[in-house]
Design a protein around this nucleic acid. Structure first.
Lengths: 350, 350
DNA sequence: CTGCCGAAAGAAAGCGATTTCGCCGCACAG
DNA sequence: CTGTGCGGCGAAATCGCTTTCTTTCGGCAG
């Protein structure tokens, strides 16, 4: 109201037009310069870059996306962002994305189908170039919308029959076999498994691999030594209590993830059991924290970096080389055992 | 190549035009309907919504942003995403944002100015409506670019002289006083403080509050009992070692954050000290993990939810009510003591 | 000297929405 | 019966880019 002229004097962010005017070329040339098209002569290109620097100009991503159809945004949906495994995964995914000139959109589904549906919808609205679905869960029906919109996807441990979907297989076998062998070598025979919730693919796969590894070691776990938990410390506590109530107790517990193992560590401590003297505990994931539990956790490492890079690469290929029929559609991420302080020889038979 | 006609038969995502055609109205009416403008009659509105449902249409955010100038994107920059405090903060921030129809862009600066500059630039390119700077660090110079582009900002514990910047003050005083009183009541006199890196505002504030609280309790901490660490478990270990080497050792340690406290717990365990019998430890943040350390950590709670909600609200006000002069520019988030198992009476003088 | 070709640069047509402006028709007053 | 006002709707401009289509111009063969 007061100052009529003020609007004109505001230094609004520079336009592609502003650059063109300053460099005395057309906006087409500016666009070509920015996109490093070879069709622009060195002479003009230099002038344009100079103008860009001078104005501190950067292109408007939304305008770009609108016309080109590509947003340079990648979505990543994780199961539960408060499990440290996932922030570490996101961190790596972001670094890789940024290195390739992409931005990421993060969502946490909390294993809730309604929330997941909402995430998917929002990602579609933002026109992501691809989505990494790192939920390990029973999400297929919801993902149909992504399939319908032809959005590249990459799933962990799940194969989707769609030309735009890639799969990352996690080779738990190696790590779990190593873990069981480690325990057997220490003298353990009575080994329990705290499984993850059966609605997660990862939980099922891990449990099956446990069974196979036991069999390979010539051991047959009692049915009641395999108990389903929920991948949280609380779940670990609950699982431990169940095992403790059994007439014959295991001397070692392999957990479906580190959070569960942390719960077991806590429950054992409360119950007066010493780890590893009275009980050996092994986790899975090797989150950063595993090094700082008491005692430090022996665990099966699953590299977040490898997983994130594989996921991003799968999406990038699908997004940038849509014509290419030789795209890599399957990726493998391996696991390995990290021995720390939570495993030791079983207590002598008393 | 094979099927020429295939392109035409592909069901591309519906347009606002598609909707308009189906509902037999103009695209202007469709737009008004979507934006709930009162200028459209009930009769038409109903027809339009029906068409929208039928086509499963949703508007293109980029086109919207381009013309309206508002992206409904909020940026959040955190210090270090692998410190569990931050994922929990991001989680709350996202929930609040989504509830208000916004999306979030996450970046982790890792306390590196170059990375931070890059984050800021990327957020600018994506035309965020605001940025929550939750780095607690010495970032002022870099933020100038945001100021220059008139982007609303909210900073934690730092006051920026800019009409678009809001501040969230953290009232550590209450929590830290309670912690010191708690220790004093248990009988402690020799209380140490493991400070955070001095480049962080939060670390300085916390340290000052510690000094004040000690003074208020009639205690004077020795200079060598205040040692600077780096807010990680490793830092906690290092800090503990320094205190242990002292001729007169403290009987209680207050840590600048929970990660540090976790390091202390580990170092004490390795050094054969029992917590809380031989040493009391208090953290700050109350990350989810604090409940599962051995022993469970007594700590000063700083609510991530409160912080996130305040941050979002600050940004929302700035973004949505630019004319309003009565915008709330300062927010206060409080702290409180949570007593668990890591504090107890000091060992009797030996 | 004329004509043709190709490279380099500009003009202009969208991308999919929002929003201003103006038109139409109806109700109401004169 | 005609003039006025206003609510509801559509036409068209616009946001900042990419990309196709044209135009221009220099060089070289005929």
């Amino acid at each position: 109201m007061a100052q009529k002229g003020s609007r004109k004097t505001v230094a609004k962010t520079p336009d592609i037009r502003t650059v063109a005017a300053l460099a005395k070329v057309s906006i087409a040339t500016v666009s070509r310069t920015i996109n490093r098209s070879p069709a622009v002569s060195e002479r003009l290109s230099k002038r344009v870059w100079q103008a860009i620097e001078q104005l501190n100009y950067f292109p408007n991503t939304h305008a770009r996306t609108l016309v080109s159809g590509r947003s340079r945004l990648m979505g990543i949906i994780v199961e539960n962002i408060t499990n440290p495994f996932f922030p570490e995964l996101i961190q790596s995914f972001e670094e890789t994305a940024v290195a390739h000139g992409y931005e990421i959109l993060v969502s946490s589904s909390n294993s809730d189908a309604a929330i997941l549906t909402n995430c998917v919808r929002r990602m579609l609205e933002r026109k992501v170039d691809g989505v990494a679905v790192m939920t390990f869960g029973e999400e297929e029906p919801v993902l149909n919308e992504l399939v319908n919109h032809d959005v590249p996807m990459v799933l962990a441990e799940f194969h989707l029959e769609d030309p735009k979907a890639s799969t990352i297989l996690l080779d738990y076998t190696t790590g779990i076999h190593a873990a069981i062998n480690h325990l057997v070598e220490l003298g353990h025979r009575k080994i329990a498994f705290l499984a993850g919730p059966h609605k997660l693919h990862s939980a099922i796969t891990r449990e099956n691999d446990f069974r196979k590894a036991m069999q390979a070691a010539g051991l047959k776990p009692k049915k009641e030594w395999i108990v389903e938990c929920d991948h949280t410390p609380k779940g670990g506590v609950a699982g431990f209590e169940k095992l403790k109530a059994l007439p014959v107790r295991p001397t070692a517990i392999l957990c479906s993830n580190d959070m569960t193992a942390i719960g077991v560590l806590r429950a054992a401590y409360m119950g007066g059991l010493h780890v590893p003297q009275d009980l050996s505990v092994i986790g899975l994931d090797d989150i950063d924290f595993a090094e700082f539990t008491l005692p430090a956790l022996t665990t099966i490492r699953l590299s977040r970096t490898d997983l994130a890079e594989a996921a991003f690469e799968a999406l990038r290929q699908q997004a940038e080389e849509p014509g290419n029929a030789n795209i890599q559609r399957e990726f493998l991420v391996s696991t390995s055992l990290v021995v720390r302080g939570s495993t030791g020889a079983p207590p002598s038979e008393a």
